[in-house]
Design a protein around this nucleic acid. Structure first.
Lengths: 220, 220
DNA sequence: ACTGCACTGCACTGTGCAGTGTAATTACTC
DNA sequence: GAGTAATTACACTGCACAGTGCAGTGCAGT
């Protein structure tokens, strides 16, 4: 997992290089590698193709990254870094009306998975999970757990202020995610059906919220 | 997709061979191939390993299956053939009490995905979906669609006899599946967390049914 | 004994790919 | 313009693996 940063040695020691920590070749290689790995998987991707796609010589790829595995790790790390964080502040309005808060959280989750690159990345996490156990672990710790945490926290607050009656916030959170992900995410991951329209997304979120309200609403 | 069946020629023309359509080597190869492909994926699996695992000579593998791709197709076909079909007859009791019918359907779905080989197979459908578009298509047509159809049919019957008020049976079916699959299936597919206990499964099914009853129950 | 057939073991071809060594070329800095 | 470091093109090694050809073996049925 140690990544060689050939140029950083120079940029660190050079006088004016501090201003330009660009490393354009390195970035181009990483960008191309991300594309190629997401499209073909680890085995299916060849260093030759990465070089061609990045416009760099094959040797340069190896000068920047000591192995295919290191390149893969670096590319994955970059994707993680660029991933948005699902985090929603629960303001007064959201705490007052669970339907508002849940809609907001639901839309955030849906928007998180909306970009095709997110789905492709999840597919790669599943595909390469055996070869790189870090992938599922990081996916869980950096991707899933925070979103779950935010959702559970919100549901507990809602429960404590009496807006809803939620005995098991963790279960409720998973249920809510299930209502959203089954139609909007997993079908795309498996690769059947067309990507959902925004109207469809909205509908699914609304219906999921209605489901939560019906099940946990104390007004029933 | 044409599979060579070297021995079937003989068994068809031979006199007493009709009694023994065993083809033990072929079956052993298919069994081993299934195991190897599920464990390593298409690229990661080598014909050498399949031969070794099956106890057959490498040449025999090629005598039975004309290529790696043909072997893969045959192995996948065999898995499809052995898959149980999620189909539940809606009897009087189930039609009279939606909670009973939904519990039954839910348990059937959960049991369908319970065996690790089912999860491994779904993982392979996702992994190799690009290389073999038949996989997701067949998964959808032979695996998902029938289950959805059975669920939708049941929900429509329940709706028509007034037990529940379900305006959109397809949406409701996907919601129900989402409530079940998110905690019980997808976590295992991604490869995080331990397989759920049977108590957990039961709990998830019960809670999913409660959710459906709360949302679509006309008694509310 | 003879024949047909599946099976085996082995050597072999061809290919694609990871990774390396090197000399020439380019780009940047002073 | 000189010096330095990155970059490039190219040749090369080593390896794993798909697929083939072939000589030989064991085992029916005749």
């Amino acid at each position: 997992m140690v990544v060689s940063r050939a140029r950083s040695v120079k940029t660190a020691s050079s006088s004016k290089a501090a201003a330009r920590a660009e490393m354009p070749k390195r970035d181009a290689i990483l960008e191309a590698a991300t594309r190629v790995f997401l499209a073909h998987g680890y085995e299916g991707a060849s260093m030759d193709l990465v070089a061609k796609e990045s416009g760099a010589a094959r040797r340069t790829v190896y000068n920047q990254f000591e192995s295919k595995e290191a390149l893969f790790s670096a590319a994955v790390e970059r994707v993680w870094r660029d991933f948005p964080v699902v985090g929603i502040a629960a303001d007064k309005e959201a705490l007052g009306d669970p339907a508002v808060g849940l809609s907001r959280l639901g839309r955030a989750v849906v928007e998180f998975w909306e970009p095709p690159v997110a789905v492709a990345f999840l597919r790669m996490v599943i595909s390469e999970g055996m070869r790189f156990p870090d992938l599922p672990r990081n996916f869980f710790e950096a991707g899933k757990a925070p979103a779950m945490r935010a959702l559970i926290d919100y549901l507990q607050q809602i429960n404590e202020n009496g807006s809803l009656d939620i005995p098991d916030a963790e279960l409720a959170a998973r249920q809510f995610l299930g209502l959203l992900n089954e139609p909007l995410l997993w079908l795309r991951v498996v690769g059947v059906g067309e990507p959902p329209s925004s109207a469809e997304c909205q509908r699914v979120v609304e219906e999921a919220v209605m489901m939560m309200m019906a099940r946990y609403g104390s007004s029933g």
